[in-house]
Simulated scan of single mutants.
Amino acid sequence: MTKAITSALNVGELAAGQVLSVPLFTFKGTDNRAPTVYVQANVHGAEVQGNAVIYQLMTLLENCHVLGDIVFAPLANPLGINQKSGEFTLGRFDPITGVNWNREYLDHKIDIAAWYKQHQDLPNDELIKSFKATLTEACHTKLQQPWGITTGHRLAVNLQSLAHSADIVLDLHTGPKSCKHLYCPEYDMDSAKFFSIPYSLIIPNSFGGAMDEAAFCPWWQLTEYAASQGRHFDVPVAAFTLELASQERIDMADALVDAKGIMAYLSHRGVIQEAVQPAKMPRYACYLKDYKKFHAPQSGMVEYCAKVGEPLLAGNTLVNILRLDLYGSDKACTSLSLDKDCVPILHFASASVHQGTELYKVMTNVFEFPC
Score class of each variant (00 low, 15 high):
residue 322 L to N: 09
residue 208 G to V: 02
residue 241 T to R: 03
residue 40 Q to C: 11
residue 18 Q to S: 11
residue 311 P to I: 06
residue 85 S to R: 14
residue 240 F to A: 01
residue 189 M to V: 09
residue 7 S to R: 09
residue 1 M to R: 13
residue 254 D to V: 05
residue 40 Q to Y: 10
residue 59 T to L: 07
residue 271 V to K: 14
residue 277 Q to L: 10
residue 371 C to R: 15
residue 144 Q to Y: 07
residue 325 D to C: 10
residue 286 C to F: 09
residue 53 V to G: 08
residue 241 T to H: 05
residue 75 L to D: 06
residue 306 A to C: 05
residue 57 L to T: 10
residue 204 P to Y: 03
residue 36 T to W: 13
residue 131 F to I: 14
residue 16 A to P: 00
residue 180 K to V: 01
residue 59 T to D: 14
residue 68 G to S: 11
residue 7 S to H: 08
residue 305 C to A: 11
residue 317 T to P: 00
residue 290 D to G: 01
residue 277 Q to C: 02
residue 87 E to D: 07
residue 79 L to E: 07
residue 287 Y to E: 00
residue 190 D to S: 09
residue 41 A to R: 08
residue 177 K to H: 09
residue 133 A to S: 14
residue 40 Q to P: 05
residue 129 K to H: 14
residue 26 T to K: 15
residue 314 A to P: 07
residue 6 T to A: 13
residue 203 I to C: 13
residue 287 Y to M: 09
residue 216 F to R: 12
residue 319 V to F: 00
residue 336 L to C: 01
residue 318 L to T: 05
residue 121 D to T: 07
residue 328 G to M: 13
residue 329 S to Y: 03
residue 270 G to F: 07
residue 40 Q to L: 11
residue 349 A to N: 12
residue 253 A to H: 10
residue 34 A to M: 10
residue 348 F to N: 05
residue 215 A to I: 10
residue 339 D to A: 03
residue 340 K to E: 09
residue 213 E to C: 00
residue 337 S to F: 01
residue 49 Q to F: 06
